[in-house]
């Protein structure tokens, strides 16, 4: 669907892990038109001109027919402001924006998420589980207190493989190390979102094991609609705007 701009109502802002908040936004009937992998621009975040730019966030989950959930890691000024919002606050939203994931029609789906990068993979996982697909999520976080939503996703039927850098939960080590052990068992597609080094490593593994891979990228954004060329990356095939040509790209195009 074409993006629209609206005043969303904040239904709920809840701390779900250390420095991670989940925002539940009522956006109306357009909610269900979003596709997994798409994102929104939130803002202006305050009255006045600071912070000046709106902030991009993936759609984390659909919540009922009229609401989107966002998973926000507090990393700077804007995200801290979002974390402190009170329910019933109004927040301008532009979306849904960008391309979505394109999973194949058959086979188990491997999803690889790191940190807040796991956000769009929940939407993808739940969407695919509802269609009867098998989903396996490799979820990496720095420590156990940064993990969100694992039980709920497992309860919906996903296999969730937790990895923590400090070993405080699940596999101790990078998510890519755990992924490497599991590859080669027949899956032929994966989707990944997270820090660039992780995406690079995942792409390397996908190449080695012959999997098709889609990666969701981040970049600084101003407009979110393809107008400013501010988020372009100079890829082998030429400049590509993350906000409209992505954020989901074929991994081979990027790395």
């Amino acid at each position: 669907m074409k993006p629209i701009r609206l005043e969303a109502e904040l239904l709920d802002a809840r701390a779900v892990a250390r420095q991670m908040v989940r925002l539940r936004l009522r956006v109306g009937p357009c909610a269900i038109r979003a596709r997994p992998g798409q994102f929104v621009m939130l803002g202006p975040l305050a009255e006045g001109m600071d912070p000046f730019l709106n902030r991009p966030f993936s759609i984390h989950r659909l919540e009922g027919p009229e609401a989107w959930e966002l998973l926000v890691a507090e990393v700077g000024r804007g995200t801290r402001m979002l974390a402190r919002l009170e329910p019933s606050a109004r927040l301008p939203v532009l979306g849904p924006l960008g391309s979505g994931f394109e999973p194949p029609a058959e086979g188990e789906l491997l999803l690889v998420g790191g940190g807040a990068g796991v956000a769009p993979l929940f939407f993808l996982a739940e969407d695919q589980l509802a269609r009867g697909r098998r989903v396996r999520l490799f979820y990496g976080a720095s420590s156990a207190d940064r993990l969100v939503g694992c039980e709920a996703l497992a309860a919906r039927g996903a296999r969730v493989e937790i990895c923590t850098d400090d070993g405080s939960a699940g596999f101790g080590g990078f998510v890519t190390a755990r992924l490497e052990q599991a590859l080669g068992d027949g899956s032929d597609w994966l989707a990944a979102c997270g820090p660039e080094p992780m995406l690079r490593a995942v792409t390397g593994l996908a190449r080695r094991f012959g999997l098709a891979a889609q990666v969701s990228l981040e970049n600084r954004m101003a407009c979110g609609t393809g107008a400013c060329m501010g988020c372009s990356l100079l890829l082998a095939g030429g400049p590509r705007r993350v906000c409209v040509d992505g954020p989901v790209f074929d991994a081979r195009e990027v790395f």
């Binding site: 600071d50 730019l53 600084r220 060329m229 988020c231 100079l234």
Partner: peptide, 17 residues
């Protein structure tokens, strides 16, 4: 093709591009 990323930076009451 334009310049390498990042191309955008937020600044007080404005932005650099």
């Amino acid at each position: 093709a334009g310049n390498p990323a990042p191309r955008i930076a937020e600044t007080p009451c404005g932005m650099l591009n």
